[in-house]
Design a protein around this nucleic acid. Structure first.
Length: 579
RNA sequence: CGGGGCGUAGCGCAGCCCGGUAGCGCGCCUGCUUUGGGAGCAGGAUGUCGGAGGUUCAAAUCCUCUCGCCCCGACCA
């Protein structure tokens, strides 16, 4: 395709609105333009990338036995009221009324719609297992859209839903999707990890997230440096410490700590390590307020706390509540003499001796507090975030932390939706059973963004071959008839051999073309000019390495095929996991 | 929703504090020259200064309201 027939509005300067690499490069390379906050138009080049990713997804979903369908983007409130998510989903669900004043929403996900279809159309266990998927635009009215396609409000997602007769079958369906996802992201040329995940608003029992490892990722993943354990930080288990401190208990002593509220202030003032300090955090969980004890150098994990308390969300108590319960300003809460609330403590507290805690009195802390002697703990639990160096909770090794971009997530839902929507089938005994479901999502635009985060340099994007908008970028750099003729022949030759070719036919200087080509990031560039043609060659440049070779025009196709991996247009293999 | 910031030409920005003819770079158009890593010279076009109201002889500039956008946080696939 000729550049003159394609709108590719590249930008020489960085747009002010973009912060991350992928957002900046998508705008600069002319892939997307913003229409409203978190809402983008895909320009021709950007759409080609999206389509490439979609195609890989389709092939792998079909291979895994899933069937494609397409659900509506608008869905009626009744379905959402059946599962309770009309209320539960909150403001993220964009609602509107039709002309008859009936309530609708734009689909943020489609469990309700597919379960409704399933219960109407499927009767017998003989029809199972089933797995339906679609690639479709979703809308979630995000609190804060950011980073371009990384977190948009409107975004393209592949979502799939499996239905099985029993748990064993559902596990197989889940595993098939897990394997399909592994193939998909491998084929997209991404370095990723599948990690154990929390289930959030979707619900369910088991879940993995597929994380593309990148500095700009919004999620934190932990993984064992030796074993296979990997999890989202929200989820990562922390083993209780095995050895108690060997100090002997000393007598409890109050000390003045004027104006020392934070861990930093208190430890600096008392010249102690943050490991000796215990933070007492007061949390609201539905109607209850609880106190949570966490060692000074640890961070509370709110997801774990919410799960322990069996509530959907927890939040720090407001200052008024804190001072009412502790009789002290925020910063001096402690477990000693604290009444009226349950006291929960992280496992680490169990082993501590002679800790420093707030005294529930302004400007005062206690030193040498011991929980079994000086205060009560109602329950010990795993309540903190894992830290680098913690032992892996499963298998060998120690934990490492990394940032990741969540490009996909798979859930084993169980009967969460089939139950509330009464989606049943008859089993081989003629008995009604609830379908066992799973659901599986991939953010298509986010996958493209993640690919850029992992594949770029200071000049621009370096597309992995399988998702590149074009394989080859032809760059004529002379104006002569000779060059024009050579380019035209090459274009025909390459196209006839199945290569997707972008031909820069603009009347621009070589430098402009080189820079745009590097920015757009086709894996291969062919530079055609009088200088080379005088020697009977063109230059073939590999975008990633910058390596150039001089090739006679009739040999270009063969040469490229060899670079593609000797197997026609099958892209070369990419590594899956980080070492 | 809380905190911070920004809306001036297609893009990136200056001008605003201290009111008085709206600017710079890039891009765009025309011509000539140039042509292998973002060309040179000459000429040219382009703005309801986000919107509404107010103060003033006079508002991009001061005041009020409003809309949009970005960043941090809370939240989230």
């Amino acid at each position: 395709m000729k550049t003159s027939q394609l709108l590719i509005p590249t930008l020489r300067e960085d747009p002010g609105e973009a912060e991350t690499v992928s957002h900046r490069l998508m705008l600069r390379a002319g892939l997307i333009r913003k229409t409203a906050a978190g809402i983008y138009t895909y320009l021709p080049l950007g759409l080609r990338i999206i389509r490439k990713i979609e195609q890989i997804i389709r092939e792998e979903m079909n291979r895994a036995g899933a069937q494609e369908l397409l659900m509506p983007i608008a869905s009626p409130a009744e379905l959402w009221k059946e599962t309770g998510r009309w209320e539960y989903y909150g403001k993220e669900l964009l609602r509107f009324k039709d002309r008859h004043e009936r309530d609708f929403c734009l689909g943020p996900t489609h469990e309700e719609v597919i379960t409704d279809l399933f219960r109407r159309e499927v009767r017998s266990y003989r029809q199972l297992p089933l797995n339906f998927y679609q690639i479709q635009t979703k809308f979630r009215d995000e609190i804060r859209p950011r980073f371009g396609l990384m977190r948009g409000r409107e975004f393209i997602m592949k979502d799939a839903y499996s239905f099985d007769t029993d748990d064993a079958g559902a596990k197989i369906s889940y595993q098939k999707m897990y394997d399909a996802y592994t193939r998909i992201f491998t084929r997209c040329g991404l370095t990723f990890r599948a990690v154990e995940a929390d289930t959030g608003l979707i619900g369910g029992d088991v879940s993995h997230e597929f994380m593309v490892l990148a500095e700009t990722g919004e999620a934190t993943v932990v993984y064992s440096d030796q074993g296979s354990y990997a999890a989202n930080l929200e989820r990562a288990e922390v083993l209780p410490p095995s050895h108690p401190d060997d100090e002997l208990p000393r007598p409890l002593t109050p000390v003045a700590t004027p104006q020392c509220r934070t861990v930093e202030e208190v430890t600096a003032f008392l010249t102690i390590s943050s490991r000796q300090l215990v933070k007492t955090l007061l949390y609201r969980a539905d109607k209850e307020t609880v106190a949570v004890l966490i060692r000074g150098d640890h961070d509370l994990n709110e997801v774990k706390l919410a799960r322990l308390l069996q509530v959907t969300e927890v939040q720090l108590a407001d200052p008024d509540t804190v001072s009412r319960l502790t009789n002290a300003p925020v910063g001096f809460a402690g477990p000693i003499g604290l009444t009226g609330v349950r006291i929960l403590a992280d496992h680490a507290i169990h082993m501590m001796r002679n800790m420093v805690v707030g005294a529930n009195r302004a400007d005062t802390h206690y030193v040498d507090a011991n929980w079994d002697r000086d205060f009560r703990v109602d329950q010990f639990a795993d309540l903190r975030n894992a830290q680098a160096g913690d032992p892996s909770p499963k298998g060998p090794g120690f934990l490492t932390l990394a940032k990741g971009i969540e490009v996909g997530q798979v859930f084993l839902l169980g009967t969460k939706y089939s139950k509330s929507m009464n989606a049943t089938i008859l089993d081989d005994q003629g008995k009604e059973r609830l379908a066992i479901m799973g659901c599986y999502g991939i953010g298509v635009g986010r996958t493209a963004a993640a690919a850029i985060e992992q594949n770029h340099d200071e000049k621009g994007i370096i597309w992995p071959l399988p998702i590149a908008p074009f394989h080859v970028h032809l760059l004529p750099v002379s104006q002569s008839a000779k060059t024009a003729d050579a380019v035209s022949r090459l274009y025909t030759d390459l196209s006839a051999n199945g290569f997707e070719v972008l031909w820069d036919d603009r009347d621009d200087r070589a430098g402009v073309k080189f820079n745009d080509a590097d920015l757009i990031g086709a894996p291969f560039q062919i530079i055609i000019g009088d200088k080379g043609l005088a020697d009977g060659v063109v230059e073939l440049k590999v975008r990633r390495s910058g390596e150039k070779s001089r090739v006679a025009p009739p040999d270009v196709v063969t040469h490229l095929l060899r670079l593609f991996g000797n197997t026609g247009l099958t892209p070369p293999a990419h590594s899956t996991f980080l070492a």
